[in-house]
């Protein structure tokens, strides 16, 4: 299982224009093209998870995540925010890179936690923040994942 297999160019936004954490979560959920009600429920669940503790893991990276019945398979998205967002991250620094991961309650192959783990592992690599900053297209993002082999 490789992270690259879960992402596609249409769920990567390298030019988020949002101003808040909430707007950012909504924008990334929007990349999944769910119906309005499902988006709203998913947003609520992600917010709820954030109230239990920020998913900002430091070094400008956040990994909001949740399980919900409104998705029927594991979905991931990535967004980059040039100015940075207040995510109440562990290191209290602005978040520029947001990996969103959502999954249904039950998955046949139970990939949710392993994928979450791989994103965390990828995020901890020393050069990753700089490499993410330098991306010029969603395709390059996918290439980076491939190159890292996570």
């Amino acid at each position: 299982m490789q992270l690259r297999d879960f992402f596609s160019t249409d769920t990567v936004d390298l030019a988020l224009k949002t101003e808040t954490k909430d707007e950012t979560l909504r924008a990334l959920v929007g990349l999944f093209h769910l119906d309005e009600k499902s988006e709203s429920i998913l947003f609520k669940m992600l917010k709820r998870r954030e109230t239990l503790g920020s998913t900002g893991i430091g070094r400008g990276i956040a990994i909001p995540h949740c399980r919900s019945l409104v998705v029927n398979r594991l979905r991931v998205a990535f967004g980059r925010h040039a100015a940075g967002l207040d995510f109440k991250a562990i290191d209290e620094k602005p978040v520029h890179y947001v990996f969103l991961i959502v999954a249904p309650p039950l998955e046949v192959s139970n990939q949710y936690l392993p994928v979450l783990g791989k994103i965390a592992q990828f995020s901890k690599e020393a050069d990753v923040p700089d490499r993410l900053a330098g991306l010029e297209s969603p395709k390059e993002f996918l290439q980076l994942l491939e190159e890292k082999g996570v």
Binding site: R48, L69, A120
Partner: peptide, 26 residues
């Protein structure tokens, strides 16, 4: 649906793997 999702979060947090991950990484 919201309640179901919250129940699920709670159950997951009570499990070893998720608990460890959430406290360790986040």
């Amino acid at each position: 649906l919201e309640m179901q999702d919250l129940h699920m979060q709670r159950r997951a947090l009570e499990e070893g793997d998720v608990r460890e991950f959430e406290s360790g990484v986040f």
